[in-house]
Amino acid sequence: MATLEADFTLPLRTFALDLALEVSRTVALVGPSGAGKSSALRVVAGLAQPQRGRVALDGEAWLDTAFRLSLPPDRRCVGLVFQDYALFPHLSVRANVAFGSRGRAVDPLLERFRIGHLASAHPAELSGGERQRVALARTLAREPAVLLLDEPLAALDAHTKAEVRHELAELLRELALPTVLVTHDYEDAAALADHVGVLVEGRLRQLGTPAELVSRPRDAFVASFTGANLLRGRARRGEGALTAIRLESGEDLYSADEAEGEVGVVVYPWEVSVARAHAPDADSALNVVRGQVGSLVEVANRVRVRVGPLTAEVTAASAARLELAAGGVAYATFKATGTRLVPL
């Protein structure tokens, strides 16, 4: 299994991108737009020159500022799939795929990506999903040792995206190349990568498996980026093993985590259940937040319900049973052990 090391500092307009990664399987860099994600890929590919750093594949350096070494992009064995795919508009699909193949036959690749029937078509005639497959085939025809994907799903519509995401995940598993992919969508990152790094203003806030990020978010940003509810409050030692948090709204919540002072209370939507009435025998191990029902969004067979400051995810069946409607009052409940306390 090959390993890509990348450790560099690249000054950007308002901040410096500072990154240290060791990649042998798939790492996803996620973060808000403008966090420096694409720039990270450009440094690895040799399209941007960092101020300081080293990029190496299995110990063989592509870039080492200490030795004033920087191989040009064409001498790094890297495949970069651009966000808008950057297919050559003047070349046919076949010629696009053959561009970097150095004479190797491209027909097997065309067949593998189901674009054989499009071989003589030009990029402008293709759908988004087809373009993406051409871009992948073109990149793999070069036989790269490292794969870089810049927002591989962003240019697709919602319908195509789910299908392509599944295919892409399979492909990455099969290729088993060191892969860095960049996305602003945490769900895409979790579906495609073994490790996810949350990048904000050029710095990695947290790097871990998707499960680690959800169970142990390091800070409020990571938590909300991974889809959690975030409530702000002040923590103090409560009765028993629980920490009490007084929210800005005046309500008290309890968490099994220990903390003191200003904290963020993190709870994931699937930890929250919704009821129409307040259960009278509620104990402190069960948090209750009363609120107005805001939006109801159906996602597959689940419904995302907004109750006061919280988003809960309930099954479509229970949403129907509860007769939830926007504007009504409901109680969101979640266990003290289902919460995490993070620094703000």
């Binding site: 399209l47 064409d74 950057a86 150095r102 073109r138 990149t139």
Partner: peptide
């Protein structure tokens, strides 16, 4: 010319000269 097309040619293994004749000039 879209700079990404030039960058794509480079990452696909084409040097400056080949990129010019295969991508920049035809476009």
């Amino acid at each position: 010319i879209d700079p990404n097309l030039v960058a794509a040619a480079r990452t696909l293994g084409a040097g400056r000269t080949r990129t010019f004749f295969r991508v920049s000039l035809p476009l």
